[in-house]
Amino acid sequence: MVDPAIILAGVLNGLLAGGIYVLVAVGLTLIYGVLHIINFAHGSLLMLAMYAVFFLWRLLGVDPYLALPIVIGGAFVFGFVLYRLLIGRFSHGKDENILLITLGVSIVADNAALLFFGGDTETIAVPYAGEIIQFGAAFLPLPKVVSFVAALVLCAVLGLFMARSDTGKAIRAVAKERQGARLVGIDVEKIFAISYGIGIGCLGAAACLLMPTFYVTPQSGYAFVLVAFTIVVLGGMGSFLGAAVGGFLIGVTESLGGLFLGEQLGQIGISLIFILILLFKPTGLFGSKA
């Protein structure tokens, strides 16, 4: 029997990682909820944002946490422009087509990263990386705790924005009923681009919060894309609450899977959850009936 303290530490570590997953998944679920497209490039765009954080630190010495506003803003603009120039033009045809377009984006992004940045694993050695916080019997790395709190704060900010601001209301209106939204004078195409931009902006934030404790390689995108889809499918496509709950569940699953099954086999839990949810409860935990 494994020591309960180790299990507790595993659960806490999983929750901490889950906080960042929530941020990644909220972006994906927002794009799905508003645009009804499956953004297969989500992982690859996260990878690009992680490289942005890495190079800001390496070339300009910007601390990943201080880079938050820059990277979020940059990612938003990148997503907005990507939607306007490319994805928006194809997003209203068959849904496999848009999936193939975003697959194309991810192939180009992954290989451009490999071509320009090389295949090495890059990390950021922040001075506070080794700091530890004691929480009961568990010792938690300070950067993970900071990232966790920051991720929750950012999700709350996004939630407030969606609930209170005019743009947020317009986004929700478009997600619910795009014809009706158009009739009351909302520029639907612009809202689509803004939503995609916000989705990618979430990735920018996640990248800043990940880099102090994680690494980036050109393959990082692929590693994250299945995790992100699993969370969103588990929570229910398009549901914010689902993305939040799913993010924590997957974080804990991954952590405990690694603990009990080992580093290699532990990853299997995520793919299995994904398959089982799609097969037996495709609406997820909080999704509406499609």
Binding site: E96, L226, F274, L278, P282
Partner: peptide
């Protein structure tokens, strides 16, 4: 389970991933 389109594409990806991890 009635999976079509993008959902079928994603579940095949997940199956390949399960087999990859198992083979590993």
């Amino acid at each position: 389970a009635g999976l079509k389109g993008s959902y079928f594409a994603l579940i095949t990806l997940a199956f390949a991933e399960v087999f990859r991890i198992l083979a590993n």
